[in-house]
């Protein structure tokens, strides 16, 4: 019995099988899952940037002007993409008290309704983000000017993050629609 439990734990935690995107997420889900690697690895890049900053400041007394803003930017994009990644893999946390108790048929209906509602909400958010992008990518006279951070280094990260947020929200909406469609067809 104890051995049995042990094996279970090994399976759940030891091997880390990567299930990838759920089948209902379709081709889009697969693409989102693949692209996740770039964002995951950029976490390691931000770690290296921070270490580099500590060494430059502590050992050489010459901190950079770009390290902190760059890590904030990278982590911000990772945070946003992480949300999309979890949609494609169906790994967002839910309270499953009722969800797990109902029959497969009802669960499918719930999945469809939840996906449609989430798609609609995400679409509205994407529209709002587009309004934000209009103010972050253009100056009042209509010229293209990405919003900058205003620091001594003054990178265009705020503008890029807002554009990234808009694009990812739009893809989240699309992903929920794909999910809803595939749940309706009962495709596995």
């Amino acid at each position: 019995m104890a051995d049995d439990l042990d094996t279970k734990i090994e399976q759940a935690m030891g091997h880390h099988d990567d299930p990838g995107a759920i089948p209902e997420a379709g081709l889009l889900g697969k693409a989102i899952d693949k692209l996740g690697l770039i964002f995951a690895l950029s976490l390691i890049v931000s770690m290296l940037i921070l270490i580099n900053e500590v060494v430059l400041r502590y050992v050489f007394n010459s901190p950079t002007i770009w390290a902190h803003e760059t890590t904030i930017f990278i982590c911000g994009m990772v945070f946003i993409y992480g949300g999309l990644y979890c949609v494609a893999r169906d790994q967002h946390i839910r309270v499953v008290l009722i969800y797990d108790a109902v029959s497969d048929k009802w669960r499918r209906i719930m999945n469809i309704v939840i996906s449609v509602v989430s798609a609609l909400a995400s679409l509205i958010f994407a529209w709002a983000a587009w309004l934000m992008v209009q103010r972050a990518a253009f100056s009042p006279d209509g010229a293209v000017r990405l919003e900058r951070s205003g620091s001594a280094w003054d990178p265009v990260y705020p503008g890029l993050t807002k554009i990234g947020l808009f694009l990812i929200l739009a893809v989240i909406s699309l992903q929920f629609l794909v999910l809803a469609y595939n749940y309706t067809k009962g495709r596995k």
Binding site: R57, N61, P63, I65, A67, S149, G150, S151, A152
Partner: peptide, 26 residues
């Protein structure tokens, strides 16, 4: 000179850098 100091974004940071300090963005 070489003073490790926090300065906010913008001109303040630039001025301290010009004065020889090592501004840290915190």
């Amino acid at each position: 000179q070489g003073l490790k100091m926090r300065a906010p974004e913008g001109l303040v940071q630039q001025v301290f850098a010009a004065a020889g300090a090592a501004p840290v963005n915190l």
